[in-house]
Simulated scan of single mutants.
Amino acid sequence: MKKKIFCVAPMFKYTDRHCRYFHRLLTKNAFLYTEMISTQNILNKKFKLFKNKDKKKKVSLQIIGNNPENLAKCAHIAYKKKYNEININIGCPSPYMTKNNLGVSLMKHTKIITQALNKIYNSSPIPISIKTRTGFNNNNTYNFLKDFIHETSHNKLCKIFIIHARNAILNKNFSTKKNRTIPSLKYKYVYKLKKDFPHLKFIINGGINTILEIKKHFKKVDGVMMGRGIYKNPFLLNKIDFKIFHEKKKKRKEIIKKMSIYIEKEIQKKTSIKSIIRHMNGIFYNKKGSKKWKNKLNNINKKNKIINIKKHFKKIYFSCKN
């Protein structure tokens, strides 16, 4: 039996390098993603893309764009920066994306995608994946989705598909937030894709919150992706590693200690403390002291001039436990 894949979803303005460092302390097995970055921001150097230092070699750079040449250039940069995969976002339903013919609206322009896949394939030896939806607006039948997969996987250019099992509503009055919960999920579409394309890998996304649900999906597809549920409750990653991948359990105390060492190193590089600790808010999720932990973390910033962050974190940790 092939090993199943578990992924933490790319989240715009959230899954930055600090978030990924924190998540990696909690999981050995999860595949991690950068936040969504536009090709223009990478090529114009408006976004500082750091070299991937993840020792587990399970990090994908997610890009968004509609110019095949630029997408290929960014894939080459990803390869040079040691990312383990390039992920093309063809799923974002925001009004801005729709207006600029980006994200999920690209599902109707498969020629652009196949051109980009060809250019990436011929210029960089980096695996390619696509994150998309089951469809958009009235293009929401299984046959529409099946045709999309058939065209974009032609000649084995793309072998990995992450499917948010929900149709996107492209309407300026319909928010991105609403598109995360409306309309209803179509898990059966993704299950059917796996039957129709057994040679491809399918990772299911959308509305998944528990380990029980993860196990259920693993019976039908190759992998599962979770996003906001993990960000809200990051320690769930540790439970997934333990219950699904049979890794050793980790203690919050040791994770916090390792993060304090990381923060001290980042402070020396003039990194804002706030930009790191915001990802740690949920480590006591649903536990005694959770609110106290959040309040104390939120009070920490550069003005605190904390020299020994390790000692400070230790004090907060024990005050929350008692």
Results as ranks from 00 to 15, higher is better:
11 M>P: 08
253 K>W: 02
226 M>G: 06
115 Q>G: 01
108 K>H: 04
291 K>W: 08
215 K>V: 03
158 C>Y: 03
104 V>L: 10
136 F>Y: 13
105 S>H: 00
83 Y>S: 00
93 P>M: 04
113 I>E: 03
281 N>V: 03
26 L>M: 14
307 I>Y: 07
72 A>F: 01
320 C>I: 03
57 K>G: 09
308 N>V: 04
252 R>W: 08
186 K>P: 12
24 R>G: 09
51 K>V: 14
39 T>M: 02
270 K>P: 07
301 N>C: 10
290 S>M: 10
108 K>Y: 04
202 F>K: 08
71 L>I: 13
78 A>F: 12
77 I>L: 12
260 S>P: 00
259 M>T: 02
299 N>E: 00
83 Y>Q: 06
103 G>D: 02
298 N>V: 14
130 I>R: 00
105 S>R: 07
92 C>Y: 09
134 T>Y: 12
62 Q>P: 04
233 N>C: 05
114 T>C: 03
46 K>D: 09
273 I>T: 06
186 K>I: 14
270 K>A: 06
44 N>Y: 01
191 Y>N: 10
154 H>Q: 11
138 N>K: 13
143 N>D: 11
93 P>Q: 05
107 M>G: 01
145 L>Q: 05
102 L>N: 00
305 K>R: 12
199 H>R: 01
268 Q>W: 08
230 I>R: 03
167 N>I: 09
279 H>D: 00
58 K>P: 05
219 K>M: 13
106 L>S: 04
71 L>M: 13
228 R>I: 13
300 I>F: 01
297 L>E: 00
240 I>F: 02
218 F>Y: 14
85 E>M: 07
66 N>G: 02
239 K>W: 05
8 V>K: 12
237 L>R: 06
319 S>N: 14
124 S>Q: 01
322 N>I: 14
26 L>P: 12
282 G>P: 06
46 K>T: 10
273 I>N: 02
78 A>D: 12
195 K>T: 06
302 K>S: 10
145 L>F: 09
20 R>D: 09
42 I>Q: 05
68 P>S: 03
220 K>C: 08
147 D>M: 05
80 K>G: 03
149 I>E: 02
19 C>A: 15
112 I>W: 09
58 K>E: 11
224 V>S: 04
123 S>I: 02
283 I>A: 04
138 N>S: 10
127 P>R: 08
185 L>G: 00
58 K>Q: 13
175 S>E: 03
39 T>Y: 04
